[in-house]
Design a protein around this nucleic acid. Structure first.
Lengths: 218, 218
DNA sequence: TTGATTAATCTTGTATACAAAAAAGTTGAC
DNA sequence: GTCAACTTTTTTGTATACAAGATTAATCAA
Protein backbone atom coordinates (compact mmCIF):
# COMPACT_ATOMS: atom_id res chain seq x y z
CA UNK A 1 0.00 0.00 0.00
CA UNK A 2 1.57 3.18 -1.19
CA UNK A 3 1.52 6.28 0.94
CA UNK A 4 -0.42 9.41 0.21
CA UNK A 5 1.38 12.57 -0.77
CA UNK A 6 -0.14 14.56 2.06
CA UNK A 7 1.18 11.98 4.54
CA UNK A 8 4.67 12.44 3.20
CA UNK A 9 4.30 16.20 3.45
CA UNK A 10 3.00 15.82 7.01
CA UNK A 11 6.13 13.89 7.92
CA UNK A 12 8.32 16.52 6.31
CA UNK A 13 6.61 19.31 8.18
CA UNK A 14 7.00 17.27 11.34
CA UNK A 15 10.69 17.15 10.58
CA UNK A 16 10.80 20.91 10.09
CA UNK A 17 9.23 21.34 13.50
CA UNK A 18 11.54 18.85 15.20
CA UNK A 19 14.72 20.32 13.81
CA UNK A 20 13.61 23.78 14.78
CA UNK A 21 13.14 25.20 11.28
CA UNK A 22 9.66 26.10 12.40
CA UNK A 23 9.71 27.29 15.98
CA UNK A 24 7.22 26.74 18.76
CA UNK A 25 4.23 29.04 18.57
CA UNK A 26 4.91 29.95 14.97
CA UNK A 27 2.08 30.01 12.48
CA UNK A 28 2.25 27.55 9.61
CA UNK A 29 1.47 29.55 6.50
CA UNK A 30 -0.41 27.44 3.98
CA UNK A 31 0.68 29.31 0.87
CA UNK A 32 4.24 29.49 2.07
CA UNK A 33 4.35 25.75 2.69
CA UNK A 34 2.61 25.16 -0.61
CA UNK A 35 5.33 26.98 -2.52
CA UNK A 36 8.02 25.31 -0.41
CA UNK A 37 6.75 21.84 -1.32
CA UNK A 38 5.67 22.99 -4.77
CA UNK A 39 2.09 21.85 -4.44
CA UNK A 40 -1.23 23.59 -4.01
CA UNK A 41 -2.79 24.40 -0.68
CA UNK A 42 -4.98 21.32 -0.73
CA UNK A 43 -2.41 18.68 0.21
CA UNK A 44 -0.83 21.11 2.65
CA UNK A 45 -4.12 21.53 4.45
CA UNK A 46 -4.56 17.77 4.63
CA UNK A 47 -1.12 17.39 6.12
CA UNK A 48 -1.77 20.13 8.66
CA UNK A 49 -4.99 18.51 9.76
CA UNK A 50 -3.15 15.25 10.26
CA UNK A 51 -0.58 16.99 12.40
CA UNK A 52 -3.33 18.75 14.32
CA UNK A 53 -4.90 15.42 15.18
CA UNK A 54 -1.63 13.97 16.33
CA UNK A 55 -1.30 16.97 18.62
CA UNK A 56 1.86 18.45 17.15
CA UNK A 57 0.11 21.60 16.01
CA UNK A 58 -2.98 23.40 17.17
CA UNK A 59 -5.63 24.47 14.72
CA UNK A 60 -7.63 27.55 15.62
CA UNK A 61 -10.61 27.83 13.29
CA UNK A 62 -10.39 30.75 10.87
CA UNK A 63 -7.06 31.77 12.39
CA UNK A 64 -4.56 29.21 11.28
CA UNK A 65 -2.47 26.39 12.68
CA UNK A 66 0.33 26.97 15.13
CA UNK A 67 3.16 24.81 16.35
CA UNK A 68 2.41 23.70 19.87
CA UNK A 69 5.33 21.97 21.49
CA UNK A 70 4.52 20.28 24.77
CA UNK A 71 5.53 22.27 27.81
CA UNK A 72 7.35 20.76 30.79
CA UNK A 73 4.16 19.60 32.50
CA UNK A 74 2.66 17.99 29.42
CA UNK A 75 5.97 16.35 28.62
CA UNK A 76 6.22 14.80 32.06
CA UNK A 77 2.66 13.61 31.69
CA UNK A 78 3.37 12.03 28.33
CA UNK A 79 6.41 10.23 29.67
CA UNK A 80 4.37 9.00 32.59
CA UNK A 81 1.81 7.53 30.21
CA UNK A 82 4.56 6.04 28.08
CA UNK A 83 6.08 4.43 31.18
CA UNK A 84 2.73 2.98 32.18
CA UNK A 85 1.94 1.72 28.70
CA UNK A 86 5.30 0.01 28.40
CA UNK A 87 4.90 -1.39 31.89
CA UNK A 88 1.61 -2.91 30.77
CA UNK A 89 3.34 -4.40 27.73
CA UNK A 90 5.99 -5.91 29.98
CA UNK A 91 3.46 -7.37 32.40
CA UNK A 92 1.38 -8.90 29.62
CA UNK A 93 4.46 -10.12 27.78
CA UNK A 94 5.62 -12.01 30.86
CA UNK A 95 2.87 -14.57 30.34
CA UNK A 96 2.65 -14.37 26.57
CA UNK A 97 6.17 -14.07 25.27
CA UNK A 98 7.51 -16.72 22.92
CA UNK A 99 10.84 -18.48 23.34
CA UNK A 100 11.85 -17.11 20.00
CA UNK A 101 11.19 -13.56 21.13
CA UNK A 102 13.14 -14.11 24.34
CA UNK A 103 16.03 -15.23 22.19
CA UNK A 104 15.73 -12.07 20.10
CA UNK A 105 15.70 -9.92 23.23
CA UNK A 106 18.93 -11.53 24.34
CA UNK A 107 20.47 -10.89 20.93
CA UNK A 108 19.35 -7.29 20.93
CA UNK A 109 20.76 -6.76 24.39
CA UNK A 110 24.07 -8.25 23.29
CA UNK A 111 24.22 -5.80 20.39
CA UNK A 112 23.26 -3.01 22.77
CA UNK A 113 26.08 -4.04 25.07
CA UNK A 114 28.53 -4.00 22.20
CA UNK A 115 27.35 -0.53 21.22
CA UNK A 116 27.88 0.70 24.75
CA UNK A 117 31.42 -0.71 24.79
CA UNK A 118 32.12 0.87 21.41
CA UNK A 119 30.60 4.15 22.59
CA UNK A 120 28.34 3.88 19.56
CA UNK A 121 25.40 6.06 20.55
CA UNK A 122 23.56 5.57 17.27
CA UNK A 123 23.96 1.83 17.42
CA UNK A 124 22.72 1.81 20.98
CA UNK A 125 19.75 3.92 20.02
CA UNK A 126 18.84 1.59 17.17
CA UNK A 127 19.01 -1.57 19.26
CA UNK A 128 17.21 0.12 22.10
CA UNK A 129 14.32 0.89 19.76
CA UNK A 130 14.33 -2.71 18.68
CA UNK A 131 14.24 -3.92 22.27
CA UNK A 132 11.19 -1.87 23.09
CA UNK A 133 9.43 -2.75 19.85
CA UNK A 134 9.90 -6.41 20.70
CA UNK A 135 8.30 -5.95 24.10
CA UNK A 136 5.38 -4.07 22.52
CA UNK A 137 4.87 -6.94 20.14
CA UNK A 138 5.12 -9.58 22.83
CA UNK A 139 2.33 -7.96 24.80
CA UNK A 140 0.25 -10.06 22.44
CA UNK A 141 -2.05 -7.08 21.92
CA UNK A 142 -1.55 -5.45 18.55
CA UNK A 143 -3.78 -2.52 19.42
CA UNK A 144 -1.63 -1.82 22.47
CA UNK A 145 1.42 -2.23 20.27
CA UNK A 146 0.15 0.44 17.89
CA UNK A 147 -0.69 2.83 20.70
CA UNK A 148 2.80 2.40 22.09
CA UNK A 149 4.35 3.14 18.73
CA UNK A 150 2.21 6.22 18.36
CA UNK A 151 3.26 7.74 21.66
CA UNK A 152 6.82 6.54 21.26
CA UNK A 153 7.02 8.36 17.96
CA UNK A 154 5.66 11.52 19.47
CA UNK A 155 8.22 11.42 22.27
CA UNK A 156 11.10 10.43 20.03
CA UNK A 157 12.75 13.87 19.84
CA UNK A 158 12.73 14.17 23.62
CA UNK A 159 13.62 10.58 24.34
CA UNK A 160 16.87 10.85 22.49
CA UNK A 161 18.03 13.57 24.83
CA UNK A 162 17.71 11.30 27.82
CA UNK A 163 20.38 8.98 26.61
CA UNK A 164 22.98 11.73 26.64
CA UNK A 165 23.08 11.54 30.40
CA UNK A 166 26.48 10.46 31.65
CA UNK A 167 26.45 6.82 32.59
CA UNK A 168 22.84 6.51 31.54
CA UNK A 169 23.68 3.95 28.88
CA UNK A 170 25.11 1.42 31.28
CA UNK A 171 22.26 1.79 33.73
CA UNK A 172 19.78 1.51 30.92
CA UNK A 173 21.45 -1.71 29.83
CA UNK A 174 21.22 -3.27 33.26
CA UNK A 175 17.54 -2.36 33.35
CA UNK A 176 17.05 -4.09 30.01
CA UNK A 177 18.66 -7.19 31.42
CA UNK A 178 16.50 -7.11 34.51
CA UNK A 179 13.43 -6.85 32.30
CA UNK A 180 14.44 -9.83 30.20
CA UNK A 181 15.16 -11.82 33.33
CA UNK A 182 11.73 -11.03 34.75
CA UNK A 183 10.12 -11.99 31.43
CA UNK A 184 12.01 -15.26 31.46
CA UNK A 185 10.74 -15.97 34.95
CA UNK A 186 7.23 -15.09 33.92
CA UNK A 187 7.23 -12.45 36.64
CA UNK A 188 4.94 -9.83 35.18
CA UNK A 189 4.88 -7.49 38.16
CA UNK A 190 8.64 -7.22 38.32
CA UNK A 191 8.90 -6.77 34.59
CA UNK A 192 6.30 -4.00 34.76
CA UNK A 193 7.95 -2.23 37.67
CA UNK A 194 11.40 -2.28 36.13
CA UNK A 195 10.06 -1.14 32.79
CA UNK A 196 8.12 1.68 34.40
CA UNK A 197 11.19 2.91 36.21
CA UNK A 198 13.20 2.46 33.03
CA UNK A 199 11.01 4.91 31.13
CA UNK A 200 9.85 7.23 33.87
CA UNK A 201 11.31 10.70 34.10
CA UNK A 202 12.65 11.00 37.60
CA UNK A 203 15.79 11.91 39.49
CA UNK A 204 18.54 13.25 37.28
CA UNK A 205 16.49 12.45 34.21
CA UNK A 206 13.98 15.04 35.33
CA UNK A 207 16.52 17.80 35.66
CA UNK A 208 18.09 16.87 32.39
CA UNK A 209 14.79 16.98 30.57
CA UNK A 210 13.99 20.36 32.09
CA UNK A 211 17.38 21.70 31.12
CA UNK A 212 16.87 20.57 27.55
CA UNK A 213 13.64 22.54 27.41
CA UNK A 214 15.09 25.81 28.61
CA UNK A 215 16.00 27.19 25.17
CA UNK A 216 12.54 26.60 23.81
CA UNK A 217 10.90 28.06 26.88
CA UNK A 218 12.45 31.50 26.79
CA UNK B 1 -13.71 28.12 20.32
CA UNK B 2 -16.20 27.26 17.67
CA UNK B 3 -16.09 23.92 15.90
CA UNK B 4 -15.23 23.42 12.29
CA UNK B 5 -17.84 22.28 9.86
CA UNK B 6 -15.87 19.23 8.83
CA UNK B 7 -15.68 18.16 12.48
CA UNK B 8 -19.43 18.31 12.78
CA UNK B 9 -19.78 16.32 9.59
CA UNK B 10 -17.28 13.79 10.90
CA UNK B 11 -19.40 13.30 14.00
CA UNK B 12 -22.51 12.89 11.91
CA UNK B 13 -20.87 10.30 9.70
CA UNK B 14 -19.69 8.56 12.85
CA UNK B 15 -23.30 8.48 13.93
CA UNK B 16 -24.36 7.00 10.61
CA UNK B 17 -21.81 4.24 11.09
CA UNK B 18 -22.77 3.55 14.69
CA UNK B 19 -26.48 3.34 14.01
CA UNK B 20 -25.87 1.03 11.08
CA UNK B 21 -26.98 3.37 8.31
CA UNK B 22 -23.60 2.73 6.77
CA UNK B 23 -22.62 -0.89 7.22
CA UNK B 24 -19.25 -2.41 7.95
CA UNK B 25 -17.08 -2.75 4.88
CA UNK B 26 -19.15 -0.31 2.88
CA UNK B 27 -17.46 2.37 0.84
CA UNK B 28 -18.13 5.97 1.81
CA UNK B 29 -18.89 7.75 -1.44
CA UNK B 30 -17.64 11.32 -1.34
CA UNK B 31 -20.12 12.78 -3.81
CA UNK B 32 -22.99 10.92 -2.21
CA UNK B 33 -22.09 12.22 1.23
CA UNK B 34 -21.54 15.67 -0.25
CA UNK B 35 -25.07 15.81 -1.58
CA UNK B 36 -26.44 14.28 1.61
CA UNK B 37 -24.88 17.04 3.72
CA UNK B 38 -25.36 19.60 0.98
CA UNK B 39 -21.74 20.65 0.83
CA UNK B 40 -18.92 20.15 -1.63
CA UNK B 41 -16.49 17.25 -1.51
CA UNK B 42 -13.86 19.31 0.30
CA UNK B 43 -15.33 19.28 3.81
CA UNK B 44 -16.41 15.67 3.31
CA UNK B 45 -12.87 14.65 2.53
CA UNK B 46 -11.62 16.46 5.62
CA UNK B 47 -14.17 14.66 7.75
CA UNK B 48 -13.25 11.29 6.26
CA UNK B 49 -9.58 11.85 6.93
CA UNK B 50 -10.39 12.66 10.52
CA UNK B 51 -12.34 9.43 10.84
CA UNK B 52 -9.53 7.53 9.18
CA UNK B 53 -7.09 8.78 11.77
CA UNK B 54 -9.36 7.82 14.62
CA UNK B 55 -9.48 4.35 13.12
CA UNK B 56 -13.18 4.18 12.40
CA UNK B 57 -12.66 3.96 8.66
CA UNK B 58 -9.82 2.76 6.54
CA UNK B 59 -8.49 4.84 3.70
CA UNK B 60 -7.00 3.00 0.77
CA UNK B 61 -5.15 5.45 -1.45
CA UNK B 62 -6.83 6.00 -4.82
CA UNK B 63 -9.53 3.50 -3.90
CA UNK B 64 -11.66 5.20 -1.29
CA UNK B 65 -12.49 4.96 2.37
CA UNK B 66 -14.31 2.00 3.85
CA UNK B 67 -16.00 1.43 7.17
CA UNK B 68 -13.82 -0.83 9.25
CA UNK B 69 -15.53 -1.97 12.40
CA UNK B 70 -13.26 -3.75 14.82
CA UNK B 71 -13.51 -7.52 14.72
CA UNK B 72 -13.74 -9.68 17.84
CA UNK B 73 -10.00 -9.86 18.35
CA UNK B 74 -9.40 -6.15 17.95
CA UNK B 75 -12.33 -5.37 20.20
CA UNK B 76 -10.98 -7.57 22.97
CA UNK B 77 -7.62 -5.92 22.54
CA UNK B 78 -9.13 -2.45 22.78
CA UNK B 79 -11.00 -3.36 25.93
CA UNK B 80 -7.84 -4.78 27.40
CA UNK B 81 -6.04 -1.50 26.78
CA UNK B 82 -8.99 0.45 28.17
CA UNK B 83 -8.90 -1.71 31.31
CA UNK B 84 -5.20 -1.13 31.72
CA UNK B 85 -5.45 2.61 31.14
CA UNK B 86 -8.22 2.97 33.66
CA UNK B 87 -6.30 0.79 36.10
CA UNK B 88 -3.39 3.19 35.75
CA UNK B 89 -5.74 6.11 36.42
CA UNK B 90 -7.00 4.39 39.53
CA UNK B 91 -3.53 3.61 40.82
CA UNK B 92 -2.30 7.15 40.27
CA UNK B 93 -5.49 8.62 41.67
CA UNK B 94 -5.02 6.70 44.90
CA UNK B 95 -2.16 8.98 45.86
CA UNK B 96 -3.34 12.13 44.11
CA UNK B 97 -7.08 12.33 44.61
CA UNK B 98 -8.56 15.30 46.41
CA UNK B 99 -11.06 15.09 49.25
CA UNK B 100 -13.46 17.03 47.12
CA UNK B 101 -13.22 14.48 44.34
CA UNK B 102 -13.72 11.62 46.78
CA UNK B 103 -16.86 13.34 47.92
CA UNK B 104 -18.04 13.62 44.32
CA UNK B 105 -17.35 9.94 43.73
CA UNK B 106 -19.54 9.09 46.70
CA UNK B 107 -22.30 11.31 45.36
CA UNK B 108 -22.07 9.80 41.92
CA UNK B 109 -22.22 6.32 43.36
CA UNK B 110 -25.29 7.25 45.37
CA UNK B 111 -27.00 8.47 42.21
CA UNK B 112 -25.88 5.29 40.47
CA UNK B 113 -27.40 3.24 43.25
CA UNK B 114 -30.65 5.12 42.97
CA UNK B 115 -30.69 4.50 39.21
CA UNK B 116 -30.17 0.78 39.78
CA UNK B 117 -33.07 0.67 42.25
CA UNK B 118 -35.27 2.60 39.84
CA UNK B 119 -34.17 0.37 36.99
CA UNK B 120 -33.15 3.53 35.20
CA UNK B 121 -30.60 2.27 32.68
CA UNK B 122 -30.02 5.68 31.13
CA UNK B 123 -29.51 7.30 34.51
CA UNK B 124 -27.11 4.58 35.48
CA UNK B 125 -25.22 5.00 32.24
CA UNK B 126 -24.91 8.75 32.75
CA UNK B 127 -23.63 8.49 36.32
CA UNK B 128 -21.33 5.65 35.35
CA UNK B 129 -19.72 7.88 32.74
CA UNK B 130 -19.32 10.55 35.35
CA UNK B 131 -17.69 8.13 37.75
CA UNK B 132 -15.08 7.10 35.25
CA UNK B 133 -14.47 10.66 34.08
CA UNK B 134 -13.78 11.62 37.69
CA UNK B 135 -11.21 8.87 38.05
CA UNK B 136 -9.54 9.92 34.79
CA UNK B 137 -9.30 13.46 36.09
CA UNK B 138 -7.99 12.42 39.48
CA UNK B 139 -5.10 10.57 37.90
CA UNK B 140 -3.60 14.03 37.97
CA UNK B 141 -2.37 13.52 34.43
CA UNK B 142 -4.39 15.44 31.89
CA UNK B 143 -2.68 13.76 28.96
CA UNK B 144 -3.70 10.39 30.35
CA UNK B 145 -7.16 11.77 30.92
CA UNK B 146 -7.43 12.74 27.28
CA UNK B 147 -6.19 9.39 26.07
CA UNK B 148 -8.76 7.66 28.24
CA UNK B 149 -11.54 9.81 26.85
CA UNK B 150 -10.40 9.05 23.34
CA UNK B 151 -10.49 5.30 23.72
CA UNK B 152 -13.61 5.47 25.86
CA UNK B 153 -15.39 7.32 23.09
CA UNK B 154 -14.28 4.80 20.53
CA UNK B 155 -15.58 1.92 22.63
CA UNK B 156 -18.78 3.66 23.62
CA UNK B 157 -21.10 1.80 21.24
CA UNK B 158 -19.79 -1.54 22.47
CA UNK B 159 -19.57 -0.59 26.12
CA UNK B 160 -23.25 0.14 26.31
CA UNK B 161 -24.03 -3.43 25.36
CA UNK B 162 -22.19 -4.78 28.34
CA UNK B 163 -24.56 -3.18 30.81
CA UNK B 164 -27.51 -5.13 29.47
CA UNK B 165 -26.20 -8.23 31.16
CA UNK B 166 -28.62 -9.51 33.79
CA UNK B 167 -27.42 -8.50 37.24
CA UNK B 168 -24.46 -6.68 35.78
CA UNK B 169 -25.60 -3.35 37.15
CA UNK B 170 -25.47 -4.45 40.76
CA UNK B 171 -22.10 -6.10 40.38
CA UNK B 172 -20.78 -3.05 38.61
CA UNK B 173 -22.00 -0.91 41.50
CA UNK B 174 -20.22 -2.99 44.09
CA UNK B 175 -17.05 -2.71 42.03
CA UNK B 176 -17.42 1.06 41.98
CA UNK B 177 -17.70 1.05 45.75
CA UNK B 178 -14.64 -1.14 46.13
CA UNK B 179 -12.71 1.27 43.93
CA UNK B 180 -13.73 4.29 45.97
CA UNK B 181 -12.83 2.46 49.17
CA UNK B 182 -9.39 1.62 47.81
CA UNK B 183 -8.90 5.23 46.73
CA UNK B 184 -9.90 6.41 50.19
CA UNK B 185 -7.35 4.07 51.71
CA UNK B 186 -4.72 5.29 49.29
CA UNK B 187 -4.31 1.68 48.15
CA UNK B 188 -3.33 2.14 44.54
CA UNK B 189 -2.70 -1.51 43.74
CA UNK B 190 -6.11 -2.61 44.92
CA UNK B 191 -7.80 0.29 43.15
CA UNK B 192 -5.98 -0.65 39.95
CA UNK B 193 -6.81 -4.34 40.19
CA UNK B 194 -10.49 -3.77 40.87
CA UNK B 195 -10.71 -1.21 38.10
CA UNK B 196 -9.00 -3.53 35.64
CA UNK B 197 -11.39 -6.34 36.44
CA UNK B 198 -14.26 -3.86 36.27
CA UNK B 199 -13.50 -2.98 32.67
CA UNK B 200 -11.98 -6.19 31.39
CA UNK B 201 -13.96 -8.39 29.07
CA UNK B 202 -13.99 -11.78 30.70
CA UNK B 203 -16.35 -14.53 31.79
CA UNK B 204 -19.94 -13.89 30.79
CA UNK B 205 -19.02 -10.48 29.51
CA UNK B 206 -16.90 -12.14 26.86
CA UNK B 207 -19.70 -14.33 25.58
CA UNK B 208 -22.10 -11.44 25.63
CA UNK B 209 -19.76 -9.25 23.63
CA UNK B 210 -19.22 -12.03 21.10
CA UNK B 211 -22.95 -12.60 20.80
CA UNK B 212 -23.52 -8.92 20.14
CA UNK B 213 -21.05 -9.09 17.27
CA UNK B 214 -22.67 -12.03 15.54
CA UNK B 215 -25.02 -9.98 13.33
CA UNK B 216 -22.19 -7.87 12.01
CA UNK B 217 -19.98 -10.87 11.44
CA UNK B 218 -22.20 -12.81 9.10
C1' DT C 1 -18.10 -18.99 -24.30
C1' DT C 2 -13.99 -17.54 -22.35
C1' DG C 3 -10.07 -14.70 -21.86
C1' DA C 4 -7.40 -10.90 -22.73
C1' DT C 5 -6.76 -6.35 -24.45
C1' DT C 6 -8.47 -1.90 -25.05
C1' DA C 7 -11.82 1.80 -24.59
C1' DA C 8 -15.18 4.25 -21.68
C1' DT C 9 -16.58 5.67 -17.15
C1' DC C 10 -16.13 6.63 -12.57
C1' DT C 11 -13.57 8.08 -8.48
C1' DT C 12 -9.95 9.98 -6.13
C1' DG C 13 -6.35 13.50 -5.72
C1' DT C 14 -4.81 18.14 -6.86
C1' DA C 15 -5.15 22.83 -8.48
C1' DT C 16 -7.55 26.93 -8.84
C1' DA C 17 -11.38 30.16 -8.15
C1' DC C 18 -14.39 32.25 -5.08
C1' DA C 19 -16.57 33.61 -0.39
C1' DA C 20 -16.25 34.99 4.12
C1' DA C 21 -13.86 36.05 8.13
C1' DA C 22 -9.92 38.00 10.46
C1' DA C 23 -5.91 41.11 10.53
C1' DA C 24 -3.77 45.15 9.19
C1' DG C 25 -3.81 49.65 7.68
C1' DT C 26 -6.06 54.28 7.11
C1' DT C 27 -8.70 58.10 8.00
C1' DG C 28 -10.82 61.33 10.92
C1' DA C 29 -12.66 63.12 15.30
C1' DC C 30 -11.40 64.60 19.75
C1' DG D 1 -1.20 62.04 19.79
C1' DT D 2 -4.80 58.58 20.66
C1' DC D 3 -8.65 56.08 19.92
C1' DA D 4 -12.39 54.52 17.13
C1' DA D 5 -14.74 53.49 12.95
C1' DC D 6 -14.06 52.30 8.34
C1' DT D 7 -11.47 50.39 4.42
C1' DT D 8 -8.13 47.47 2.47
C1' DT D 9 -5.58 43.41 2.48
C1' DT D 10 -4.58 38.94 3.86
C1' DT D 11 -5.89 34.34 5.05
C1' DT D 12 -8.87 30.62 5.86
C1' DG D 13 -12.73 27.76 4.32
C1' DT D 14 -15.54 26.05 0.48
C1' DA D 15 -16.75 25.11 -4.24
C1' DT D 16 -15.55 23.84 -8.66
C1' DA D 17 -12.47 22.48 -12.42
C1' DC D 18 -9.06 19.48 -13.97
C1' DA D 19 -5.69 15.38 -13.98
C1' DA D 20 -4.65 10.75 -13.25
C1' DG D 21 -5.39 6.24 -11.50
C1' DA D 22 -8.87 2.50 -10.91
C1' DT D 23 -12.93 0.18 -12.22
C1' DT D 24 -16.10 -1.35 -15.40
C1' DA D 25 -17.69 -2.20 -20.07
C1' DA D 26 -16.76 -3.60 -24.67
C1' DT D 27 -14.45 -5.53 -28.39
C1' DC D 28 -12.19 -9.20 -30.50
C1' DA D 29 -9.48 -13.51 -30.88
C1' DA D 30 -9.16 -18.31 -29.76
Amino acid sequence: MERKRSDIIADEIEGLIFDGTIADGERLDEVQLASRFDVSRTPIREALQRLAQSGLVEQLPRRGVFVRQPGPVELIEMFEVMAELEAVCARLAATRISDDALQKLHETNALCDAAVEANDANGYFRENERFHALVYRQSGNSFLEQECFRLHRRLQPFRRLQLRLRGRLRQSMSEHKAIVMALENGDGETAANVMRAHIAVQGEKFHHLMASLKPAAE
